[in-house]
Design a protein around this nucleic acid. Structure first.
Lengths: 204, 204
DNA sequence: CACGATTTGTACCGAGCGGTAGGCTAGGGC
DNA sequence: GCCCTAGCCTACCGCTCGGTACAAATCGTG
């Protein structure tokens, strides 16, 4: 489709650049709250160009979210590379809190704000977002399962439940960030989480 | 307005009953995903009756959410009446997890699903929901601040940050529930939270 | 039983939605 | 230089949105 042919009028926009603009609009207003007019204004292209390049509003969202999600998973995996489960969880939560309150994009998390609940005809959007969040939770679970095998978790601690707990906390921080919570607010919550997570900490 | 006068044709519906139906639609589809047609169908009344009784879609939502929120706060306060901070937090989280997965209403939490991110013209909806969540967090904070005064929290534990942590976990559970997490999934996460919350537990 | 008051139902409003038709424009291939 | 291809842009499509006008229906009251 958009192969390497050089014939025809060249595109006046960079696909990834306008995707990032679209991502920001979806992030700020949600899928259903982002109108095509708002999207095209932010992307700096007009409607037919958008449809020629991406197919539909839903496909545009899928492309934007895939890009966003890949970055999120990379960020998570980097944090989880810490040598102990305790350090990995802390790095995950702190990196997440920082990302939720970074100044160069909207507050919160596209995976949550994009559309937790949608009209019936947009139900796929909620599913896509849920699948994305599940993938992040799976990354956490992989890391913590490995920790369990390595004896880096207390006996009887269920890695999957721990992953779900950490992911839920992070999602809750996303909800708080969307409502305007500051980075310090979130990091204080992480402080509590880590302070109370003593049973996951290896012996000093 | 809707005083105790008895003249005129009587209303064919009960206001609180149809409000509950509306609540369920908003809960399932979010504010922007809930169309007037879907609402009136579920409420069993037609459009002009809705507008005569509630004024506008936004006012209908406010009425529905106020009712929902009052019930949530009552539920939270009942849980927080436990004698110790540890027991109060556990009761809050377990009651929340049960409510998020109850069979007699949609999964998750209206305060989160209603509209974390909206189009600009519906920005008030997000604010209303955020205010509601903040009120619940305030109730938590009140209880934990009292615990701090009573020496029921470890020295240096910030009651407000602890309240934020517990609230964030509960909101994360709401996100999970909206995506189909089972009650057992959420309770296992609460198990982890309580198991790791040892530093809040009073001496045995 | 007619009157005034209020709710009900039908049918409609302008506006904005997501999506598209068709002519114009800019480049490469020959 | 000409043609073909692909992207741009204006103007428009049908549809659904939230919201309303108006008349028939139903009550208490005189």
């Amino acid at each position: 489709m958009t192969g390497t042919t050089t014939t025809g009028r060249p595109r006046a926009f960079d696909e990834e650049t306008v995707l990032d603009r679209a991502t920001e609009v979806f992030w700020r207003h949600g899928y259903e709250g982002a109108s095509l007019s708002t999207l095209t204004d932010a992307m700096g292209i007009n409607r037919p160009s958008l449809y020629a390049a991406f197919g539909s509003k839903e496909q545009l969202f899928q492309r934007a979210f895939a890009r966003y999600h890949a970055a999120q998973v990379a960020r998570a995996r980097a944090a989880l590379a810490q040598p102990t489960a305790y350090a990995a969880v802390e790095a995950f939560l702190r990196s997440s809190a920082d990302g939720l309150t970074a100044a160069d994009h909207p507050a919160g998390c596209l995976s949550v704000q994009g559309g937790l609940a949608c009209s019936p005809e947009n139900g796929r959007i909620s599913e896509i977002l849920a699948t994305g969040r599940a993938a992040t939770e799976d990354a956490l679970n992989e890391r913590l399962s490995r920790a369990a095998e390595e004896g880096d978790l207390p006996d009887g601690m269920d890695a999957r439940a721990l992953a779900r707990f950490v992911m839920a906390l992070s999602e809750g921080h996303a909800v708080h960030a969307a409502a305007g919570a500051s980075r310090e607010d979130l990091q204080a919550s992480v402080d509590i989480a880590m302070r109370t997570l003593t049973s996951v900490r290896p012996r000093d």
